[in-house]
Computed example of a mutant assay.
Amino acid sequence: MKKLLLAVLLCVPTLSLADMVVIAHPSAADISEDEISRLYMGRAGSLMPVNLPDGNPLRDHFEQELLGRSPAQMKAYWSRLVFTGKGRPPVEVATSAEKIDFIAANPNSIGYIPASDVTDQVKVIATIAQ
């Protein structure tokens, strides 16, 4: 049974940091990973971050790798900020395609998507490097 589980897990594709990009409206300037992190933590207000729903593997990967927090830690973090009135969590959309449409229509927004999903509607402003 353990061998079967291991074989299945090895066949499941995993996300790597090189496969994720941060996108913005085509008129946006490039920003650093530190600035992206501050935006998603509610510590900077120049751009509106856009998230995928809780439990989405890409969101989990983004939060763990770039923000250095688990999904549970992020949920608790935002619950505290919202409860105290000190912040508003990122906007949520259901899919990468919806995120691209939202960002293309909202010049002051930012989001992360798989590099393979990039279209000419948005601009890649950062690549999450290993």
Rank of each mutant, 00 (worst) to 15 (best):
R88F: 10
G42R: 08
D34R: 04
T95C: 10
V12A: 00
I128R: 04
G55S: 13
A105Q: 12
P89A: 13
A97W: 08
C11L: 15
S46W: 01
M48A: 03
P57W: 14
E33W: 08
V124K: 09
N108R: 03
K3C: 05
L5K: 10
F102G: 09
P90S: 13
A94G: 10
R80C: 12
V21Y: 11
G45P: 03
K3G: 00
A76E: 15
T119P: 01
D60K: 09
V21W: 11
V22G: 08
V82Q: 14
A129F: 04
F83L: 11
Y77T: 02
I110H: 01
V91P: 00
T119F: 06
P89C: 08
A94E: 07
D19S: 15
S16R: 01
I36M: 10
R59Q: 05
D117L: 10
A94S: 13
A18W: 05
L17A: 12
S109M: 03
A94N: 09
Q130R: 07
I113W: 01
L66S: 09
A7R: 06
T127D: 00
V91K: 03
K2N: 11
V21E: 08
M1A: 13
K123A: 04
Q73W: 09
V91D: 02
Q64T: 04
M1H: 09
M74I: 06
K123E: 02
L17Y: 03
Y40H: 06
Y77C: 03
D30T: 06
L17S: 12
A129T: 03
G87F: 07
D30M: 14
G55N: 14
I36P: 07
F62D: 04
A24I: 01
S96E: 14
H25V: 11
L39R: 00
I36V: 12
E33F: 05
G87Y: 12
A76G: 15
S96C: 08
G68S: 12
G42F: 05
M74W: 05
A7C: 00
I125L: 02
P89L: 02
G87V: 08
L47F: 09
G42L: 11
D101R: 14
L10W: 01
E35N: 09
A105M: 08
R69E: 10
V122Y: 07
S46E: 07
L6G: 08
D120E: 10
N51K: 14
M74L: 12
L39I: 04
S109W: 03
A18L: 02
K99Q: 10
A126S: 05
A105R: 15
D54R: 15
H61Q: 14
T14I: 10
A105G: 06
G68R: 07
I110K: 01
R59G: 04
I110T: 00
S16L: 09
